[in-house]
């Protein structure tokens, strides 16, 4: 579903991502962990097609994000670490805007909005302007908008930040459900306990370089993900 080959991105003299390669198959939840400034967000933004990169290839379902960005973007959804949404719109207007862009039919969008907003308990606030939303509510709205068009690849940067415990629990269920239906999820997190329980595969990045990746068992062995991560960070 997602293949990253030798991705390199520099900002001035700083190498943010250094020759990074990853492969994420359909049905996989892939965790991406690393300290602050390790290059996670740059990688995720490059995958989402909103960050130009210097070298390498990013293929979504076999299509290069550089050669055909629209075909790639129509198959995926992206949620940044800080969901700055259109504050001048109401929640429902924003969802309809996203649905229109992705060509979601009237019936389908109505059904999905009802289902997703109901599950995340946002239905009563959909008519309110986004400017009045809390961080958590914006995060929930961003989640609904991401799930609205049934994407094949979901890319998320720190998706659990700001969510209340119930919403976090629901979201984990939604992630697993999406993958069971064949989608792939690539997300960054600092919550290693969540990553350990939720992810099928995990990649650890340090100073732009991939230092370990594979299935959860391959990466952590008998230890906890936290101790492996701290050990690798200390090296």
């Amino acid at each position: 579903m997602l293949r990253i080959e030798n991705l390199t991105k520099t900002f001035g003299e700083k190498v943010a991502v250094d020759n990074l390669s990853l492969h994420i198959a359909p049905g996989e939840i892939y965790g991406f962990i690393g300290h602050n400034g390790a290059g996670k967000t740059t990688t995720l933004r490059s995958v989402a097609g909103i960050q130009e990169f210097d070298n390498g290839r990013i293929l979504i379902n076999g299509t290069s994000i550089v050669d055909d960005p629209i075909a790639c973007k129509s198959q995926m959804a992206y949620i940044p670490d800080n969901p700055d949404l259109y504050e001048f719109m109401s929640g429902i207007k924003y969802l309809n805007f996203i649905a229109n862009i992705f060509g979601v039919s009237e019936e389908l969008r109505q059904e999905r909005i009802r289902d997703l907003a109901g599950r995340l308990e946002l239905t009563d606030d959909l008519a309110q302007p986004i400017a009045t939303y809390s961080h958590g509510m914006k995060q929930k709205l961003a989640l609904i908008s991401a799930w609205l068009h049934d994407p094949k690849l979901i890319v998320m940067d720190e998706p659990f930040v700001g969510l209340d415990p119930k919403a976090s629990f629901l979201m984990k269920g939604m992630m697993r459900e999406a993958c069971d239906h064949g989608a792939a999820i690539f997300f960054s997190t600092h919550v290693l306990e969540v990553a350990e329980k939720l992810c099928d595969k995990v990649a650890i990045i340090k100073q732009g370089r991939l230092i370990r990746s594979g299935t959860m068992e391959e990466v952590k062995g008998d230890e906890s993900l936290e101790s492996v991560f701290l050990e690798l960070e200390a090296q």
Partner: peptide
Amino acid sequence: AVYREKATKQKSPASALLMK
């Protein structure tokens, strides 16, 4: 503002961007 579910006519991406 109270949210009432109602059918919304599907628009093309171009008109959705214009409406935005």
